[in-house]
């Protein structure tokens, strides 16, 4: 058992335990903090696989953006010290059984599947290669999705402003 194997198991434990606590914690603020640990663990997994750019994006967008947004909305909508209602026992049991059996089935199929790695030369996921391919207009370039997603971000921003303005004029 080499050092990288041990590191992988530690990262996996952080991800899965964080995720489990995030979906079962009774205090909503604690759930958000456990989610934060899980997302940091996922960034660690990307570092482990040598995808440093994606790991950096994960930390900046998820840890720095989305979790902070979630925590802000918790403070705006909750008394963050109070407990949430626990789920109905029947619903918890059936959801748990469904998740466990679906997981078993999926992993059974994954184990039976044979994967064939490509024999071609490896392309390093360096920032230079990522940038060149993302902004290229050739056959395997990603310029059009890049522009489309920028339009989506603009639409989401305008949508948020519209939603926020509407209630303010109604309550005044």
């Amino acid at each position: 058992m080499s050092a990288s194997t041990v590191i992988f198991y530690i990262i996996s434990a952080v991800i899965l335990v964080g995720a489990l606590l995030a979906v079962t914690a009774r205090k909503i603020f604690r759930a958000a903090v456990y989610l934060l640990f899980s997302l940091i663990g996922i960034a660690g997994l990307y570092f482990f696989l040598n995808y440093e750019f994606i790991a950096a994006v994960q930390i900046v967008v998820y840890v720095g953006g989305i979790v902070v947004l979630i925590i802000f909305s918790i403070f705006l909508t909750h008394e963050s010290g109070s407990d949430m209602k626990s789920p109905a026992i029947g619903r918890a049991i059936y959801s748990g059984l469904a998740a466990v059996f679906a997981f078993a089935l999926t992993f059974f199929i994954i184990n039976k599947t044979e994967f064939y790695p490509t024999q071609n030369e490896t392309l390093e996921p360096s920032v230079r290669n990522i940038g060149l391919q993302m902004l290229s207009t050739t056959e395997h370039g990603y310029l059009l999705p890049f522009e489309a997603v920028s339009m989506l971000l603009l639409a989401a921003m305008i949508g948020c402003i519209v939603i926020a303005i509407k209630t303010r004029t109604q309550t005044d």
Binding site: A19, T24, A99, V100, A102
Partner: peptide, 10 residues
């Protein structure tokens, strides 16, 4: 599936 469980119970 942890996410699915959370989505169904919360």
């Amino acid at each position: 599936f942890i996410g699915v469980y959370g989505f169904l119970t919360r």
